[in-house]
């Protein structure tokens, strides 16, 4: 008599997520390195100077942007990394289907994005403290979290969702590359062609630029990321393991 263990997709996905979080925990070092790089580039990321009445006024604005850009690159890389063979095969040493693997990856990337988004937001404070004690320049009052908590939360949320979207880009590129090299380059060419035509620019303008609020932008980005992950899942459905 056979006793088959019944296991639901949800519980497999949860186990995979838990497992992947441990397995990929080493990525923390890459994140720290890139955030430190971000801080180094952040001081005077945006610097402007004007002269009036023979007096030069320089204003250095240190913002999260540089850190965010570095971490975005990491998000793309990590999204790409976990589609590589070694990472994919690891899943199948345990219970997994391609669907559960993809969902788990998508969730893991979201969790990573949350961690990266929140920490990136706070790296600016590391810089604030450093500059406060080390700079002879005068400081301009800047917005603090307490002044506008909603706005701060929205910025963090936006960063998280954008990082997630970037990781999905890396993910779909990796999936395509693993599945069909030809398809990958084909897609690349199509994207470049689209980018060069005006309509595409117009479309991306509608999506990313013409938004009445950041929240709408975030919602759109979220939708795009979901779409990309779904596409990747569909593509990878015929990908063999240990071949």
């Amino acid at each position: 008599m056979m006793f088959l263990s019944n296991i639901s997709l949800t519980s497999v996905v949860l186990s995979q997520v838990k497992f992947k979080l441990s397995a990929y925990s080493g990525l923390i070092y890459s994140l720290i390195i890139l955030q430190v790089l971000g801080i180094l580039f952040a001081t005077g990321w945006s610097s402007s100077g004007t002269s009036i009445n023979n007096i030069s006024i320089n204003l250095n604005i240190s913002s999260i942007d540089s850190g965010f850009i570095f971490v975005s690159l990491l998000a793309i890389s990590v999204g790409n990394l976990i589609t590589t063979r070694a990472y994919r095969y690891d899943d199948f040493s345990f219970v997994a289907t391609r669907l559960s693997s993809n969902i788990a990856n998508c969730i893991v990337l979201l969790i990573f994005s949350c961690y990266a988004g929140v920490t990136t937001y706070f790296t600016v404070y590391l810089m604030r403290i450093f500059l406060t004690f080390n700079s002879t320049n005068e400081f301009v009052e800047g917005p603090t979290i307490l002044d506008d908590p909603m706005n701060s939360l929205l910025t963090i949320l936006a960063m998280i969702i954008f990082l997630w979207m970037f990781s999905s880009l890396g993910y779909i590129a990796g999936t395509l590359f693993q599945n069909h090299k030809l398809l990958f380059f084909g897609a690349l060419v199509i994207i470049i062609m689209l980018l060069l035509t005006g309509t595409w620019i117009r479309i991306s303008e509608i999506i990313f630029v013409e938004n009445s609020s950041l929240l709408i932008l975030v919602a759109k980005t979220f939708g795009i990321a979901i779409l990309i992950f779904a596409t990747s899942t569909a593509i990878s459905n015929r990908l063999g393991v240990r071949v």
Binding site: S56, I61, S63, F68
Partner: peptide
């Protein structure tokens, strides 16, 4: 010449 330092919690790219 005066130099001022300012911190921003905003993401300018957004």
């Amino acid at each position: 010449e005066f130099t001022f330092e300012q911190f921003s919690n905003e993401l300018n790219v957004f």
